[in-house]
Design a protein around this nucleic acid. Structure first.
Lengths: 225, 225
DNA sequence: ACCCCCTGAGCACAATGCGCAAAACCGGTT
DNA sequence: AACCGGTTTTGCGCATTGTGCTCAGGGGGT
């Protein structure tokens, strides 16, 4: 794994060049990994993949010229899907189209480095080599390896209620008051407000004050945008 | 799980009609599975998939009119790849194109039935539902379930108590709290909860949070959808 | 005897709803 | 402009309920 010709060649595809650089830098920390210059569009990804034939593509779900999930179907490369999207349908689609791994942005470096290292071990057990014959146990051991690893290193996991409050705000087609959110989630106003103020404080949602009726200004909540 | 509308619809695609029937019969043994009439060509598979929208396709790698691996890329369905081919390159290609499982023919019935049951549990944890939000842990747990639900060649057997807890949830005509389950099974609340949380984690049952009274939200358990 | 697995009891603490006081607003009056 | 009253909303403390964990004990297998 020390000879350059044996390195795992990794390509990062993300239209946000700072994010792309960050992920490229994470990947470069893994021993035996060589990272190509990141690209920001599906078209550039196709060209880079055809030219360099990377062993692994770190693919963003949303690209300016094409859905990353559609590109995923076409490129016939080993892919990790990296996305801020965390709805189950997107995850299912990505997996169905061949993503070996799905990482919710933002994530800590070790979430990605652990996964890449696991992929390297997987590729050792299940190499892309027609001369190698596997039995069922080896295949399943390989799959367990690629999905093994340490606990997810991403951001702090939200509680179910906090996530439900955030979802209610993100899914609304208009700004919501605390009372609105409480009704939608099914919790008390006080609980909704508790979470809303926390989410606003950490920048996950936005607040606007609504004036014009007697009484305190009403806080209205919107997605971060 | 008795309502036909909640069944997992499975399509077998294999040109050897005896093998296809055998695999269809295996699949039909899994509770909650409805098996379509098998088809023997890629063209027929495309038609059947467009018409019936199966939840799972059991796909042979070699079809008379097209490579099963090429069809795999096109059909955008959840697929198990079943093949006599055991070279590592074919395995890698299948996984890269989205096969959730690779079974080397011939295989025993329980190799397939266990995998299908694991898929059902996976689909409970990662449903194809845009309204559901997942965290990284849930995604990875889902992947572990589908790839390594049980050890090869046989089910991990449930203890009597675990089975009794699962039965209590499945038989109830309404969602149950841990206290309810404890009473029905005749174990302590802590024991019931221990098993309930394990069953929920492995996708065998669903949890909903019940709000409205002071104190922590109450976990309510339902059968898998 | 030793080990492993399972169970229940007890406890710490997480998370919720309720009730209330205070903050903040608007409109009217002086 | 300043003040007041009425109203609405926010934010906090507290009591309560539920979850998850630890530990001791029991039973079964080797």
């Amino acid at each position: 794994m020390s000879a350059a010709s044996d390195d795992l060649v990794v390509l990062v595809v993300d239209d946000d060049f700072r994010v792309a650089r960050l992920h490229a830098e994470y990947a470069a920390r893994v021993p035996g990994v060589r990272v190509l210059e990141p690209v920001g569009t599906a078209a550039a990804a196709r060209r880079a993949i055809a030219q360099h034939r990377p062993g692994l593509v770190l693919l963003d779900a949303y690209l300016p010229d094409e859905s990353g999930l559609d590109l995923l179907r076409d490129i016939d490369a080993d892919v990790f899907l990296l996305s801020a999207a965390s709805d189950a349908d997107t995850v299912r689609t990505a997996l169905r189209r061949g993503a070996l791994c799905y990482l919710i942005k933002p994530f800590a470096a070790d979430a990605l480095t652990d996964r890449i290292a696991a992929f390297q071990r997987f590729a050792n057990v299940v190499p892309a080599d027609p001369a190698r014959t596997l039995d069922q146990e080896a295949i399943e051991r390989g799959l367990r390896i690629v999905h093994s690893g340490d606990s997810p290193g991403g951001s702090r996991s939200r509680s179910a209620t906090e996530q439900a409050v955030l979802d209610a705000v993100e899914r609304a087609d208009a700004e919501l008051s605390a009372v609105d959110v409480a009704e939608r989630v099914g919790v008390s106003r006080a609980t909704a407000q508790r979470y809303l103020s926390g989410l606003a404080a950490d920048g996950s949602i936005r607040v606007q004050l609504n004036y014009g009726s007697t009484g305190r200004p009403e806080h209205r909540y919107l997605p971060r945008g």
